[in-house]
Design a binder for these strands. Structure first.
Lengths: 103, 103
DNA sequence: TTTTCATATGAAAAATAGTTCATCTATTTA
DNA sequence: TAAATAGATGAACTATTTTTCATATGAAAA
């Protein structure tokens, strides 16, 4: 973690540290979806979803593919999948109480 | 990523999505340190560091070990090291421009 | 047994991030 | 070509986080 990368680390993590963005990533687990489909799956409003999609794309978490009036998005599986696995393992050991909101 | 874990994911990521906390983790890369040593290494004020250490500990990122009037902290290497490697790889491909702050 | 050092803590202030709203553009359909 | 649909965007508003400040606690040293 050299100093010139600290900003990028911070951005990487804080991009993922948001409930709405996680819902969106979750909605994309089983493949490509357009904005309307993501809204429905994630139960989030269109404008909000568009803002977040832009952010997720900028940070390389998802890829965009335009098709006529539709924008299709898909997960960057190479990063996201092992990441989620890693967190899963971490949580198994340290975060049970956290998931339940205990202190 | 089942729904009952979403909150825990969010907390995991947002814990790491903060510059000061990353500085602290960075300061712990080469082994155990007490609060004063962390402050010096990370160039952060004591009170701020204490607040963040509490947060990092609660989320299982670091471990605390009290010794007299000193509190020693060390990285949870099992989680943090592979995590940083994973991000490193991700950034190599997608985030060069991000690290430089471009849009 | 007072003083000093190390750390913790709560509350206020400051900074940052997230959401909503109104509106705009582009594409497709009637 | 007018209306409808899909999505994007900027600005205002709201909420959350981070930092600071003043002070408390507890251990060790003088």
């Amino acid at each position: 973690m050299d100093s010139c990368n600290k900003q990028a680390y911070r951005l990487f993590f804080s991009t993922l540290g948001n409930q709405s963005r996680l819902e969106i990533l979750n909605a994309l687990r089983n493949g490509k979806k357009n904005v309307t489909e993501i809204c429905a799956a994630a139960k989030l409003e269109q404008s909000l979803v568009s803002h977040h999609l832009k952010e997720l794309e900028y940070h390389g978490m998802i890829f965009r593919e335009k098709n006529g009036k539709f924008s299709y998005f898909q997960l960057n599986k190479k990063t996201i999948q092992p990441l989620l696995q890693l967190i899963e393992d971490h949580m198994g050991e340290y975060c049970c109480k956290i998931a339940r909101g205990e202190r």
